[in-house]
Amino acid sequence: MAQPPFAEVSDLAAWVGQEIPAEDPRATAVLLAASQVVIAEVGPKVAEDWAEVPGDVSAITVQVAARVWFNPQGLIADSIDDYSRRWDQGGESGIYLTSGERDLLSKYRTKAKGLWALGTTRGDDCADQYLDVVNADTPGTLEEPIPFLPPGA
């Protein structure tokens, strides 16, 4: 089941300082897309568990939507005759979260994102190159050992 946006069209209208009808399809689409970016950051399970969308999540959704509302093509510069305007790109385009927005949403994540190293060696305990396997059905008895490749082999 698709979730409704994390903010109302009236919230977006207030933020951008424009009158936007409540049923405006573009505003609804932008808010839905912004909400999906937030869901991708915090995880779908977290978002489903909210009885009420937290205020900071709603505010971030509106900020993301406003960026797209004002600059749907993701332009970094525009000029007409002798008038020119340049937007702060920040290396991103389209619908995205800034690093500050990601930091604010980090408290809702259930698991850390990123890379890490997971050690897989067992030290001297496995120097004979076999791991003992305990029989779960008969406690205290062992099954045939599993071959183990020691570090550096």
Rank of each mutant, 00 (worst) to 15 (best):
M1E: 11
A2V: 11
A2W: 04
Q3D: 07
Q3H: 08
P4Y: 02
E8L: 12
E8R: 14
V9M: 06
D11Q: 12
L12E: 01
L12S: 03
A13R: 07
V16W: 06
G17V: 06
E19V: 00
I20M: 08
E23A: 14
R26Q: 08
R26P: 01
A29L: 12
V30P: 00
L31F: 03
L31K: 00
L31N: 00
L31H: 02
A33G: 09
S35K: 01
V37R: 10
V37P: 00
V38P: 06
V38C: 02
E41W: 01
A47L: 04
E48F: 10
E52W: 08
D56W: 08
V57D: 00
V57P: 02
S58K: 09
I60R: 05
V62M: 02
V62L: 02
A66F: 05
A66S: 13
W69Q: 07
F70M: 13
F70K: 13
N71A: 10
N71D: 15
N71W: 12
P72L: 03
Q73C: 08
L75W: 15
I76S: 15
I76R: 15
A77Q: 13
A77I: 03
A77D: 09
I80L: 11
Y83I: 09
Y83M: 08
D88N: 15
D88R: 15
G90T: 14
G91E: 10
E92H: 13
E92V: 09
E92Y: 11
E92P: 01
Y96E: 06
Y96N: 06
T98Y: 01
G100K: 03
E101F: 01
R102V: 14
D103N: 10
L104V: 11
L105S: 09
L105G: 04
Y108M: 03
R109T: 04
T110M: 14
K113E: 10
A117K: 10
G119V: 12
T120M: 14
T120H: 09
T121M: 07
D125A: 14
C126W: 08
C126S: 12
D128Y: 03
Y130S: 05
L131D: 11
V133K: 13
V133G: 06
N135A: 02
A136C: 01
D137T: 05
D137M: 09
T138D: 09
P139N: 04
P139D: 03
P139Y: 04
G140W: 04
P147S: 01
P147I: 00
F148S: 06
F148M: 02
P151A: 06
A153K: 06
